[in-house]
Amino acid sequence: MSAGGWIRPCHRWTAIVFTLTVLANFAARALQGGEPPAWITYAPLPALFLLLLTGLTMFVQPYIARRRSGKPLLHA
């Protein structure tokens, strides 16, 4: 499986994990009525960091592929 083959599913599943942790954060705030423990507040951050890495990788892949193929990056 190529890099593009595993990065996209990883990005999608990380987005699901991130969404669930954010929802859990809001639920904890609503049920507790105040500030939840720090580990609940910061739980979405590892998934957010992975989303940043995988998203930037997917963004850069077409440019790397074009550079490797020898095609110009800008069309005149």
Rank of each mutant, 00 (worst) to 15 (best):
A3Y: 10
A3N: 12
G5R: 07
W6S: 15
W6C: 14
I7R: 00
P9M: 14
P9T: 08
C10R: 01
C10Y: 02
C10E: 00
H11G: 02
H11Q: 08
H11V: 02
R12M: 12
R12Q: 12
R12D: 13
W13Y: 15
A15D: 03
A15F: 02
I16Y: 11
I16Q: 13
F18C: 04
F18I: 01
T19K: 05
L20N: 15
L20R: 11
T21P: 01
A24N: 02
A24S: 14
F26C: 10
R29N: 13
A30M: 06
G34V: 07
G34W: 04
P37A: 10
P37I: 07
W39S: 06
W39V: 04
T41L: 03
T41G: 06
Y42A: 10
P44N: 11
L45E: 09
P46I: 05
L50A: 11
L51I: 14
L52W: 15
L53Q: 00
L53P: 00
G55E: 03
G55Y: 02
L56R: 08
T57S: 04
T57R: 00
F59I: 09
P62Y: 03
Y63V: 10
I64Y: 12
I64L: 15
A65G: 05
R67V: 12
R68K: 08
G70C: 15
G70F: 09
L73V: 08
L73K: 04
L74I: 15
L74E: 13
L74D: 11
H75L: 15
H75A: 13
A76V: 11
